[in-house]
Simulated scan of single mutants.
Amino acid sequence: MLLIAIILWGGAIAPTKWVLESIQPFTLLFLRLCFAGGICVLFSFNQLRKSIVNRDIPWKRVSLLSFTGVAGYFMFTSYGIALTSGLHVSIIDAALPLVTIVFSALFLKERIHINYWIGIVLGFIGVVCITIPSNNDTQSASLLGDILILCSTFLFAYYTILLKRPKQEKNLSNEVFTTLTLLIGAVILFPFAAMEAFYYGLPKLNAWKTGFSFMYLVVGATILAYWFWNKALEEVSASISGLYLNALPLVSIFVSIVLLNESVTWKVMIGGILVLLGVVWADQNKLRAVIKSVDRGTDSSV
């Protein structure tokens, strides 16, 4: 289930680019969250109604989580994907674990191990290597897109930090929490989508590729991916899921090369290797812990 979720998320870059050819970014996000949230309501209506009646929903906190982890994150990501290459998006997104480590030190006062610092420095050099424009890039457009993707990484890292703090939403099931974040995200995006519709007109799905891509973003990359991921977390540890998450940029890079026909330049290759090496270096303690736990489980079964 973890692997399926990673594949569904990693494959979202190409469909997003295809849909953005016909639909403006804010409008796309609003429709995506509306459809995904509406489908989730069908499966969690009774639980959602019970939570509202019992006043178990901390609306301010859930709204903040929805903005940082859903609406705001998707806003920066969609505009970034529209302006830069899929390869750049994949590699910059790969730096998310490193940004989360830095934010943990800033906001949670967690101590950063020397391995983390080495990984952070390697990842930072890799991101800088990718974002610096060259003659083969789209110059300012590519740079602006890279900056937006980096901002989305910062925002999602802060969302992760918020989840580590005392959880007022502990009485909510995963289904209800996911439904609320999607619907609140749609409400946040509505004014921006309305302004886009006023200036550019209503979206038109004038190609089968656009329609199927939109369906994939709603069903595959939103509903099914989150469902598989949350369901898998009931059975496996956070350490193992984190290691799987590190494979996400590899899937995204593969999809960008195959479906978007993007070429790997030396700058992208060097920057990508540095970012991935930084993440692996920072996570080596986690990897050792997972290997030891697997070994102990094997020994006990024998």
Rank of each mutant, 00 (worst) to 15 (best):
I270Y: 00
F156K: 11
L143V: 04
A71N: 01
D283P: 00
S239F: 13
K60F: 09
T265G: 00
W9C: 04
S78M: 11
V268G: 05
C151W: 06
S256T: 08
S142G: 03
I147L: 15
L287Q: 10
S252D: 02
L65T: 09
I270H: 01
E262A: 08
I4F: 09
S256G: 08
F30Y: 12
L28R: 02
F190A: 15
G297A: 14
S237N: 13
F107K: 00
I4L: 13
Y216I: 06
E262H: 03
I130F: 02
S134R: 14
L83W: 09
G272K: 03
I147Q: 05
G211I: 13
H88N: 15
K109I: 03
L180Y: 04
I223S: 08
F177P: 11
L98H: 13
L48C: 00
N206G: 13
T210G: 00
I39C: 10
A36S: 15
L87A: 04
F43Q: 00
R32L: 04
Q24P: 05
L202D: 07
L277I: 11
K267P: 00
L202K: 11
W117N: 10
N206L: 04
A95R: 14
G80V: 00
F30S: 14
S78H: 12
Q168M: 08
I270M: 03
K267T: 04
I52A: 10
I273V: 15
L172H: 01
N230V: 06
I6Y: 03
W208P: 07
A5L: 04
T153W: 06
L150K: 09
S66G: 15
Y226G: 09
C40T: 10
Y226A: 05
V268M: 13
V255M: 07
M195R: 15
F30R: 09
L287E: 09
G297R: 14
G11E: 02
V128K: 00
C40V: 10
A289H: 14
V53I: 07
S173V: 02
G145L: 01
A157N: 12
V187P: 12
A197S: 14
F254E: 06
F254I: 15
G86H: 05
L224Q: 10
F228W: 07
C40W: 10
K109P: 04
L108W: 00
Y158E: 02
F43Y: 06
G297K: 13
